[in-house]
């Protein structure tokens, strides 16, 4: 009997490792294709040769200064947003939670917009301030949503949270439009493309600005995977097992909001990644967070990378904002989930 459980456990684990391996292979494949896609085409061979330092100066410039940072950012924000969504879904026990749908992304975007419009659109030296500001914006929005969807005696009401989130996101987007027109007509363009989800931080310094936050939050969330499993069993069981529910929940929520804020600071308002990544993950490897979190991260990274590549490829030489491509994939999926789940 015991050995059977062990066997099942081991099979699950090897299945998880297999899924992770497949995702990594797919990401590498998408990476090569993405390197290849754009205004100037490079053959896979040229890409590989340039990567190993054998290309011409022009190829070197295109790959290392334009495409590579953008690809790295796509992968990073995909992973960050997916993990953020996974935590939010787990904590609220609400299958439809996502930092975009809940309005956290919009809060971060508002701060980014204010920063960019006050300190000129060149954003030279202080890119590193951006994630911090976005974090503040995301945090403030999260607090607002939490307060509005909290009810004494009943705690956080998941359905109300979604409703409040949609409202807050709509309000912040409207505020962004009104504010930018007031500030500077040129900034309108920035806000419009931010709202559409265009990845705008496409150089290495944005990667460097984003990375510390991911290095801080991602391992923390992975480390708390067991706690999330326990929290998923319900408050009473979790307390019975000796978990300090409120404290753990607050910490995890802060990490999720931080991840979303930092990611959105360098990308545009990309929604649905936090929805699709974890759902795909859950379907493939089940609800155990130790394996679900990394799989979600990889699924999110793959999704954003593919969406970004498609956006560059479909209408060459025009760029379709990544968020638009993600929404075309993500919105029907959201509707499908909505039809399936009891809200």
């Amino acid at each position: 009997m015991e050995s059977m459980i062990h066997q099942a456990e081991r099979r699950k684990r090897s299945r998880g490792i297999l899924v992770i391996a497949i995702f990594i292979v797919l990401i590498i494949a998408a990476f090569v294709v993405s390197m290849n896609t754009g205004f100037i085409r490079l053959s896979p061979l040229e890409v590989i040769r340039t990567l190993f330092g054998q290309g011409t100066a022009q190829q070197h410039l295109i790959l290392f200064e334009f495409r590579l940072p953008r690809i790295v950012i796509s992968i990073l924000i995909g992973a960050g947003l997916a993990v953020s969504g996974c935590v939010m879904q787990g904590l609220s026990r609400n299958a439809l939670a996502d930092p975009g749908i809940l309005g956290v992304n919009a809060g971060a975007g508002l701060m980014v917009m204010l920063y960019v419009s006050f300190f000129s659109s060149t954003v030279s030296g202080s890119v590193f301030l951006l994630p911090v500001l976005a974090l503040i914006g995301a945090g403030a929005t999260a607090v607002l949503i939490y307060v509005l969807s909290y009810k004494k005696g009943e705690g956080l009401i998941p359905t109300r949270m979604l409703l409040v989130g949609i409202g807050v996101a709509a309000g912040i987007s409207a505020a962004m439009i009104v504010l930018t027109l007031r500030l500077n007509p040129e900034e309108y363009q920035f806000v419009a493309s931010w709202l559409a989800g265009r990845i705008w931080g496409t150089s290495w310094k944005f990667v460097v600005a984003l990375l510390p936050w991911l290095i801080l939050f991602l391992p923390f969330v992975f480390y708390k995977a067991k706690v999330m499993n326990v929290l998923n069993m319900g408050d009473q069981t979790a307390t019975g097992l000796g978990t300090a529910i409120e404290r753990e929940r607050l910490l995890l929520l802060a990490a999720a909001v931080g991840l979303a804020g930092a990611c959105v600071a360098v990308s545009g308002g990309i929604g649905f990644v936090g929805l699709i990544g974890p759902h795909l993950g859950r379907r493939l490897v089940g609800p155990k967070h130790q394996i679900l979190l990394p799989v979600s991260a990889l699924a999110g990274a793959l999704l954003v990378l593919v969406a970004d590549t498609l956006g560059r490829w479909i209408l060459q030489p025009t760029d379709i904002p990544t968020g638009v491509v993600v929404a075309v994939i993500g919105a029907p999926y959201f509707l499908y989930l909505l039809a399936k789940t009891k809200v």
């Binding site: 979604l162 949609i166 929404a327 075309v328 993500g330 029907p332 959201f334």
Partner: peptide, 12 residues
């Protein structure tokens, strides 16, 4: 919720 998703899809 369905309205929000449909709007997101159509806008995109």
């Amino acid at each position: 919720l369905a309205g929000a998703a449909v709007s997101a899809l159509f806008t995109a």
